[in-house]
């Protein structure tokens, strides 16, 4: 059993939890992910590690409510236990001294980009992070990112905080005015990652994306997460999750993310109905 030692609600839909998993914490590297199950009947969901504390044996996960499992997870309390928690999975980020680099995070991708940003800075890079969301309320982990990077730029689509506009606009400006930028990492919704890659392409700057495919085991056994990279089939769980963004078949990747859409919606609706019927007083929408 894996105890939730700390839980925080970061905004309306995003939560943060610290989970007791000493074995995972002892060996995790930036860029890797874990798979958890809430209960024996639960599904296995992959989440990129947002932070870790080796000494205390803790892993931090940050997730957005997007369906039944994340909804149910958000309702667990401190000291509750998760049924299963495996990791560290996937290949670690290639951390080297590149020089000047940029990390771009959107939505819960801000959490995923955090340990990568920190490690890049620790390796002696000058790291500019750009994080963005629709509005001020949706910006998460600003303090952590400020600490982890050399410079932090925040954007909101509606201008309610930081720069008005998309992360990619800021990225384009930076690429335009500074030819010394060696590499870009971007984690967020597929469309954001794709647009980031489109933005960097004319500048020929290596752009790494971290893919969040549907998975079952997460160890290379099932192939649920397969994706076409430069015309070749790769497994996100064991070959990734990070790939050269310019080589990703985004259409196929996005299609495969919708494989269970209808079923997942039904299951979430059932869950909300039960919640409502039981009149436990908890949130139903």
């Amino acid at each position: 059993m894996y105890k939730i030692t700390k839980k925080e609600q970061l905004n309306d839909v995003i939560y943060s939890m610290w989970i007791e998993a000493p074995e995972v914490a002892s060996s995790v590297q930036p860029g890797q992910f874990i798979i958890l199950m809430i209960s024996e009947k639960g599904e296995r969901i992959p989440l990129t590690v947002a932070d870790f504390n080796r000494k205390k044996g803790l892993i931090r996960i940050v997730f957005q409510i997007v369906g039944k499992t994340s909804d149910e997870l958000s309702k667990l309390k401190e000291n509750d236990n998760l049924f299963s928690f495996i990791g560290p999975l996937g290949m670690a980020t290639e951390i080297e001294k590149y020089g000047k680099v940029i990390t771009v995070g959107g939505g819960t991708g801000i959490a995923c980009i955090h340990p990568i940003t920190r490690a890049l800075k620790e390796a002696g890079n000058e790291v500019i992070s750009i994080i963005g969301a629709r509005n001020k309320n949706l910006i998460i982990m600003e303090e952590e990112l400020k600490k982890a990077s050399s410079q932090l730029i925040v954007t909101t689509d509606d201008g309610s905080y930081g720069r008005k506009g998309f992360v990619t606009q800021v990225l384009k400006e930076l690429l335009e005015e500074d030819s010394e930028i060696k590499k870009v990492w971007t984690i967020g919704p597929p469309i954001m990652m794709k647009v980031t890659c489109d933005t960097t392409k004319p500048y020929h700057v290596d752009t790494i994306v971290s893919l969040n495919s549907i998975m079952v085991d997460g160890t290379g056994m099932c192939g649920s997460c397969r994706v076409t990279i430069g015309g070749e089939t790769k497994f996100v769980c064991s070959d990734g999750p990070e790939f050269d963004g310019q080589l990703v078949d985004w259409e196929e990747f996005s299609n495969r993310l919708t494989r269970y859409k209808g079923l997942e919606e039904n299951s979430w609706n059932e869950f909300k109905k039960v919640e409502h019927d039981c009149k436990c007083g908890r949130r139903t929408e």
């Binding site: 599904e43 039944k68 499992t69 079952v216 079923l263 039904n266």
Partner: peptide
């Protein structure tokens, strides 16, 4: 994952 018992079990299968 017992997807044949979905949605009693949470893993879907299509």
């Amino acid at each position: 994952m017992k997807a044949y018992s979905f949605p009693v079990y949470d893993t879907p299968i299509k």
